[in-house]
Amino acid sequence: MSFDRSKPVLVVDDTYAIVRIVRTLLNAQGVLDVEGAGSGPEAIRKLSQKEYGLVVCDYYMTPMSGADLKLIMDGRPEWAGIPFLLMTTNDAGAKAKLDRPGAPILIQKPFTAEALLAAMDRAVSAVAA
């Protein structure tokens, strides 16, 4: 299962290097329309302006975490159906907070292109289920 490739992907991370890596991985997989956002509020602004096919978001960000952004998206019917993938490091704190039903699909750094592709599919399946 794949996300809607006719729509852009939004990569949310306050670290430019990670946005760049994810964009490069997606571009090489034929996903050419990839946009970056440096924070949760910027992501919300972008989501309000355009329809995205997938959101790939870092967990640790300020002023809102990736999990907070997902909660906000779940509260808006027009965003709740967008597949969402959360990037974390292997972190007990994040795991504990995300151990709940309906929690977003996680991908742990470091990730390979193959792992990213598989996680994207899982994120899409989670929305479709």
Partner: peptide
């Protein structure tokens, strides 16, 4: 193919 291409693209960075 895409995965291999993606890994090469990241290697280039």
């Amino acid at each position: 193919d895409m995965i291999a291409r993606a890994e090469r693209a990241v290697d280039a960075l």
